[in-house]
Design a protein around this nucleic acid. Structure first.
Lengths: 345, 345
DNA sequence: GACCCCAATGTGACCGGTCACAATCCTGGC
DNA sequence: GCCAGGATTGTGACCGGTCACATTGGGGTC
């Protein structure tokens, strides 16, 4: 360890080289684990490295070699549970692989703004992971230049927005299908749906899973209510649905939405699950502790993030053991907010 | 724009130079806005830049100049509301200043693990922002080498863990004080406290604000109940408090904790605010939509993040207009979960 | 018309690594 | 005892920028 105090510039490989009495190239070989270095020499170099507290300069490495061991995550949001968990999963495995993680937030879905963000991310070097659950993300994924290594975390793999690139996804369709079936199986005539904003013009995977379950059961298909991402949107949608006495079951695009719906029903004087059943999506940490606790579908966002990184890692290094389809299985969690419809209905 | 298709290596300043018939240094001057370049020349260079689609290589810039326009945020968590919001605030202003944002998660508070993370962050170059609301963060802040530009987001500015470095903080003490006073003013004999884990051994700012309010009112000071960060911890603590019929008011270290407490009280058959009043901390997005909606203290985490970045920015560049004490003012938000104590009490 | 000065531009070295290739050292085979 | 050939090690150039300094070209001033 360097105890001399004068820690001016950090030591470079040439400093280490002179200290060990070898050439800088030999030092380079040692830190890269190159086989043909005489053990004696290696030890001398390692001693010098330790003595000078040498650390390989990541910037220089990136410049000289081209590879940068870095991922930039492009996302429209960092605070929502799902997004944050994906990010956490990415960071976790990136750290394990000693990759640096950068983030870029897509504040607006505006074409120019998105393009600028993608550019910035590209400038950072390394790989890219784009969370494409929303219009901004989808647009960003599409704006990534073809030569850049990128993995998309997408809502649904069908009809890729950005060509044939690697994606990961959760089976939202199946998840929505199961949740809807659960509600129907309790005896509800049909299930209403409060949607999160769709990432594209097309019908979202969640919506189509819900629709399929209704169709299979021969249940009437009400028009989905458009929500936003947060509880406020759910609240608005919930007030609207609460006015309709025929509504006895509501599936929500995510748990925050469900929270808002729960509140709206309470304000409208309709009890849950006595009058109306509510189910959410994601199993956010607080959902189990609501009153009533929320029936929801648990999605493994962290695992999704890990899978995304693994995929990117495979693309960036040929040590690629890419899991073919890293789809995690959604799990229905039944809690207090769902039950049979009221006797009269 | 480059339309030739063959986008091999991106253009460098030397490519631009030959294209414009000048030396690379002149190109460098143009992209840096150096004054002494003849307008004619500048235009020629700009044309070449546009033609070749040149973008300055951030890595090379960092290596050659030393400055890297990057911040790394070190945090123990990315999913909790407060942390995520701070991160969002940082990213927001970093983007505005065209700084890259990196994140490093302190998964364990273990000394060696923390030191490793700090090292990694240091290797990334640029500045550092450490969120030091918890033991891992505090330890990380302490482990940052003196020569590294760093800003700490700390719980309380007194008795700095890392020497006399720049920090930002919110006035948690005042916030807790106000919340407690609010509950006392409703007529409660005293206020119980469910604490978030303290960042240090010492009494946290929130705890001491609560204590002060009690003392001033001459109210008895019950022992704080130790919670965790999430709803589960609040639930456990809440069940414990619910057993004590004397408890009529509970202040919680954050809204997630309060959520758990609310649930526990419900399970114990104690109504809120009829039997017990509950107040939280942070004003998370869902708190307004709980049933009952949560009385809490709103803290401007995003603003805190912005302030942290501004401070760091000032340290990194002498264009430093550092706001002296970027303390945002907490605001009490009274909702349904707090009210007068039951008549009999 | 000589001289000086400053605006405008170019040259070489350097940041801290890597890569490709050259040079040296040993060691065994004949 | 000589030489081939692999094991070790060293040299020079380069990645794409910046920095410090040298060089050129006019436009005053006297």
């Amino acid at each position: 360890m360097n105890v001399t105090g004068h820690t001016r510039r950090p030591a470079s490989i040439r400093d280490v080289a002179t200290a060990a009495g070898v050439s800088y190239q030999t030092v380079s070989r040692v830190i890269n684990g190159h086989p043909s270095v005489k053990p004696t020499t290696r030890d001398r170099v390692l001693a010098a490295i330790d003595e000078l507290g040498f650390r390989r300069n990541a910037t220089a490495l990136a410049l000289a070699s081209g590879r940068s061991r870095a991922v930039t995550v492009l996302t429209a949001n960092t605070t929502h549970y799902g997004y944050a968990s994906i990010l956490q999963g990415i960071e976790e495995s990136a750290r394990a692989a000693s990759y640096a993680v950068g983030i870029g937030v897509l504040e607006s879905a505006d074409e120019a703004a998105v393009a600028a963000e993608v550019q910035r991310a590209a400038d950072a070097g390394g790989g890219l992971i784009v969370i494409a659950y929303d219009p901004a993300g989808v647009r960003a994924l599409g704006a990534v230049p073809a030569e850049l290594p990128v993995v998309g975390v997408v809502e649904t793999p069908a009809s890729p927005p950005g060509g044939d690139r690697p994606w990961v996804w959760t089976d939202d369709r199946e998840a929505a299908y199961e949740a809807t079936r659960h509600l129907l199986s309790l005896g509800h005539e049909t299930v209403h749906y409060v949607a999160i904003p769709s990432s594209t013009r097309r019908t979202s995977a969640r919506t189509s899973g819900w629709r399929q379950a209704l169709k299979e059961a021969g249940a009437p298909e009400p028009r989905p209510v458009q929500g936003s991402w947060g509880p406020a949107g759910g609240h608005t949608a919930g007030l609207q649905l609460a006015r309709n006495p025929a509504v006895t079951a509501i599936l929500c695009g995510n748990d925050d939405l469900a929270l808002g719906v729960l509140r709206a029903l309470h304000e409208a004087g309709r009890s849950v699950p006595g009058d109306v059943s509510v189910a959410g999506f994601d199993d956010a940490p607080h959902s189990a502790f609501l009153t009533p606790s929320l029936t929801t579908v648990r999605l493994d966002f962290t695992g999704l993030g890990r899978a995304a990184f693994a995929l990117l890692h495979g693309v960036l290094e040929e040590a690629a053991q890419i899991a073919p389809h890293p789809v995690s299985v959604p799990e229905l969690v039944v809690r207090e907010s769902s039950g049979p419809p009221p006797a009269g209905a």
